[in-house]
Design a protein around this nucleic acid. Structure first.
Length: 593
RNA sequence: GGCCGAGUAGUUCAGUUGGUUAGAACGCUAGCCUGUCACGCUAGAGGUCGUGGGUUCGAGCCCCAUCUCGGUCGCCA
C-alpha cells in the first residue's frame, strides 16, 4: 500500500514537468474553485506542492479527506497555467492518478488552525505540540536550534575540544538551586540528584588530564520559570580548559560565537573580538544592571547629592537617587505614563520624571520640586532643551535596578537611542567574591565558591589579618552578556585546596566543610590539579536571541509550561503504590482545603 | 508565596451606564463557481460568557471567593 516517495513537497520545479512522481505529506488545505476544479496543498517537512484535480472521481476522493490527514499522491508533474512566484514549487502542480490516505485525521475541527497556531492559547499549543510543530513558522525554530547546536559543536571540535558526556544520575549538590531528586531503589532512603550543571565533573576531567572539554549539557534546576528561563531543564554549551586563564577562555568564545550569530541570527552583525570588558561595579553604576544592553546609548547618573532634600518625599534623606537622561525626547504624556507603569512592574519600584522644554524650563512630573536648583540640575546632568529625565529612588540596590530597567525600556522605545539589529556582546568581569548577606548580616560567598579569588592565597590572608576589606576582593569570574541577556557565567576555578580552605574560612567555614560539600573535587585537587577555567553559555538563550523570540518556549521542541508541567505527556503524574513501595517512599501530602 | 494581566463559539477577539434573541473574523458543514493560491459568493451548525456564591426586577458586565494560564518579584552557586 504505502510506497516510498520519489520526491519531497519542496523539490519539484519546471525541469520536472512530465515526470511521474509520488509525494507524501499532510493535507494542508483545499481550495474548491468550482465543482469541476479543486486545488489541494500537500505539505511535508520540506515544503508544499499543489495538487490539481479536474475530474469528478478524483475531486470526490480528495474532498472526503480531512485536513491534516497524511496522504500519498502519485501523478504527473505539469506546468501551471497560472504560476505562483511566492511558492518555491509555484511553477508546477501535480495531476494525481492515485491518492491514498496513510493516516487519517479523525477530527474535522482541530484545536487550532495549524498555519496560525502561534496565535492560539499557549496551553492548548503545548498540549497539542505535535500539531503546533507542523506549522512551518514553529518548526523553523527547531531547525535553527539544530543548526546552531551543530555549528557550535563543529567549532568547538575545531578548536581542539573533546566532547565528553557526564552522568545524569549523580549526587545532590549542597550549593545553588533546588535539586531534582531520584530515589535509589537499591539504597532505601537515598537519592540521586540530576545535575544542575556538570560543574564538578568537568573540573574532575581537568584534574584527570583532559586538556579541553566541552559538552552540549542538559542541566536540571528545580526553580520557577520566567519568559526567558525554562523551568526544570535546559542546555548549556559547557566547556573547560586546563592550564588556562580568563583571557584564554575569552579568546575561544570570541572566536566561536560571533560567526554562529552572524550566520544564523536574525541580525547578521555581531561584536568581533575582543568583546568589551566591563567591571561588575562599573556596570552596576553605569547601566544599573550586570547585564547591560550595549545597543542602547543611555546610562545612569547618581543624583543623590543633587536632588536630596528637594521636598519630593521619595527623595528624602537616606534614599539614593538615580537619573537617566534621554536627549531629543518628543514623546507624549501617554507614552511616559506607559513607560512608568511598565518600569514599575519590572523593577518593583516607582519611576519619576521631568522634562526640560524648549525654553529651558522644567515641566511635568516632579518638576515643581526642582525650582530652587534649576541651574545646578542642568549642569550636573548636562541637560539640553528637549531632554527627558527618568528618576528612581530608594536603597542603592532598588534605585540602581529601577534605573537599569529605565535604561532598557526608554532605550528600546524612544527613537534614536538604540541600534537594534546587531548582537552586542560584552564581558562583565571582576565580580566581588564576598558580600554581606541580607538576612545573616555576615560575610557570605557572593556567587560560587569555586572561583579563584583575584590575588590568590595572599589576598585572602591579608583579609584575614584585617589588612584588606574582604568586600573589595574580586574573583576571576565573568559573565557573558549579549543584548542585555545573560548568556553565561564562567570562572577561573580555584584548583588549590589551601586557597579553597582559606576562602571558606573567611565565611566562618573550614576544611571540613569543603570536604563535606565537594568531597570528590577536594580529594582530586590534592593529587595535583592544573589551573583551569571555563564557561557554559546557555544554548536555549542563544537560540532565543538568534531566532528573535521573546519566549524560551518558542525554541524548545517540547517545552513545559510556567508551572513545570508537560501538558502533552501529563508530567508530573502520580505513580502506582507498587512503584512507591519498591522505592520505600511514603507520601505525606498537604491537605487540600 | 506576593503583585499585575487574561479567561465570551473549534480558534482569535468585540461586547457601550447593568436591559429584547450575546456578535465579528477565521475554521467547520451544505450549496454555487473551470486557474485558485489568505480564492470568491450564499446559507447553516456551533455558547454552562472559567467555576461557585452574592447584589439586583434583571448580570458577560458590579461585589466576594476559587480555579487555570501568562508576565513579574522572591528564587535561579
Amino acid at each position: 500500500m504505502f510506497q516510498s516517495r520519489t520526491n519531497t513537497c519542496g523539490e519539484l520545479r519546471l525541469a520536472d514537468v512530465g515526470k511521474r512522481v509520488t509525494l507524501v505529506g499532510w493535507l494542508d488545505s483545499i481550495r474548491e474553485v468550482s465543482a469541476n476544479l479543486i486545488f489541494v496543498v500537500l505539505r511535508d517537512f520540506y515544503g508544499t506542492t499543489q495538487i490539481v484535480a479536474d475530474c469528478e472521481e478524483m475531486i470526490r476522493q480528495l474532498k472526503e479527506i480531512t485536513r491534516e490527514s497524511t496522504i500519498q499522491v502519485t501523478g504527473v508533474v505539469r506546468e501551471r497555467s497560472s504560476r505562483n512566484p511566492k511558492q518555491d514549487t509555484g511553477d508546477i502542480e501535480l495531476v494525481p492518478e492515485r491518492v491514498s490516505v496513510l493516516g487519517r485525521c479523525r477530527y474535522h475541527e482541530l484545536p487550532f488552525q495549524v498555519n496560525r497556531s502561534r496565535e492560539a492559547d499557549e496551553a492548548v499549543r503545548l498540549k497539542y505540540r505535535f500539531l503546533d510543530l507542523r506549522n512551518p513558522e514553529v518548526k523553523r525554530n527547531m531547525v535553527l536550534r539544530s543548526n546552531v547546536v551543530a555549528a557550535l559543536r563543529a567549532s568547538m571540535i575545531e578548536h581542539g575540544f573533546l566532547e565528553i558526556t557526564t552522568p545524569i544520575l549523580t549526587a545532590s549538590s549542597p550549593e545553588g538551586a533546588r535539586d531534582y531528586l531520584v530515589p535509589a531503589r537499591n539504597h532505601p532512603g537515598k537519592f540521586y540528584a540530576l545535575p544542575q550543571a556538570p560543574q564538578q565533573f568537568k573540573q574532575l576531567l581537568m584534574t584527570a588530564g583532559f586538556d579541553r572539554y566541552f559538552q552540549i549539557a542538559p542541566c536540571f534546576r528545580d526553580e520557577d520559570a520566567r519568559a526567558d528561563r525554562s523551568p526544570g531543564e535546559f542546555y548549556q554549551l559547557d566547556m573547560e580548559m586546563a592550564f588556562a586563564t580568563q583571557e584564554d577562555v575569552f579568546a575561544v568564545i570570541e572566536d566561536v560565537l560571533p560567526p554562529v550569530f552572524e550566520k544564523y541570527g536574525a541580525y547578521h552583525r555581531a561584536s568581533s573580538a575582543p568583546f568589551v570588558r566591563i567591571p561588575y561595579r562599573e556596570a552596576m553604576d553605569k547601566y544599573g544592571s550586570d547585564k547591560p544592553d550595549l545597543r542602547i546609548d543611555l546610562t545612569v547618573s547618581d543624583a543623590t547629592d543633587l536632588l536630596a532634600g528637594c521636598g519630593f518625599e521619595p527623595f528624602a534623606e537616606g534614599n539614593r537617587i538615580k537619573a537617566v537622561v534621554v536627549s531629543g525626547f518628543k514623546e507624549t504624556r501617554k507614552f511616559i505614563d506607559k513607560v512608568c507603569a511598565d518600569v514599575e512592574v519590572q523593577a518593583g519600584s516607582k519611576m519619576y520624571w521631568f522634562r526640560m522644554d524648549e525654553n529651558g524650563e522644567f515641566v511635568g512630573g516632579i518638576s515643581k520640586f526642582l525650582s530652587d536648583r534649576h541651574d545646578a540640575v542642568i549642569t550636573a546632568l548636562q541637560l539640553t532643551p528637549g531632554c527627558f529625565v527618568g528618576l528612581s529612588a530608594g536603597t542603592l540596590d532598588a534605585a540602581r535596578k529601577t534605573a537599569g530597567v529605565m535604561v532598557k525600556t526608554l532605550g528600546a522605545r524612544v527613537p534614536g537611542h538604540m541600534d537594534p539589529e546587531q548582537y552586542a556582546f560584552c564581558w562583565i568581569v571582576d565580580f566581588p567574591m564576598y558580600e554581606v548577606g541580607e538576612e545573616s548580616g555576615e560575610l557570605e560567598f557572593c556567587h560560587n565558591p569555586f572561583s579563584m579569588p583575584s590575588g590568590g592565597l595572599a589576598v585572602l590572608e591579608a583579609a584575614e589579618r584585617g589588612e584588606v576589606d574582604p568586600l573589595t576582593i574580586t574573583a576571576d569570574q565573568y559573565d557573558l552578556v549579549c543584548n542585555g541577556v545573560e548568556l553565561s557565567s564562567g570562572a577561573v576555578r580555584n584548583h588549590d585546596p589551601d586557597i579553597m580552605v582559606k576562602a571558606f574560612e573567611l565565611v566562618r567555614l573550614g576544611e571540613a566543610d569543603v570536604k563535606a560539600k565537594f568531597p570528590a573535587m577536594y580529594n582530586a585537587f590534592c593529587y595535583g590539579a592544573p589551573p583551569h577555567a571555563g564557561i557554559a553559555p546557555g544554548v536555549d538563550r542563544m537560540v532565543m536571541l538568534l531566532a528573535g523570540e521573546e519566549s524560551i518556549r518558542e525554541i524548545i521542541p517540547f517545552p513545559m509550561n510556567k508551572n513545570a508541567q508537560d501538558l502533552m505527556m501529563d508530567a508530573p503524574s502520580e505513580v502506582t503504590q507498587r512503584q512507591l513501595d519498591e522505592l520505600h517512599i511514603q507520601l505525606h501530602l498537604p491537605k487540600k482545603e
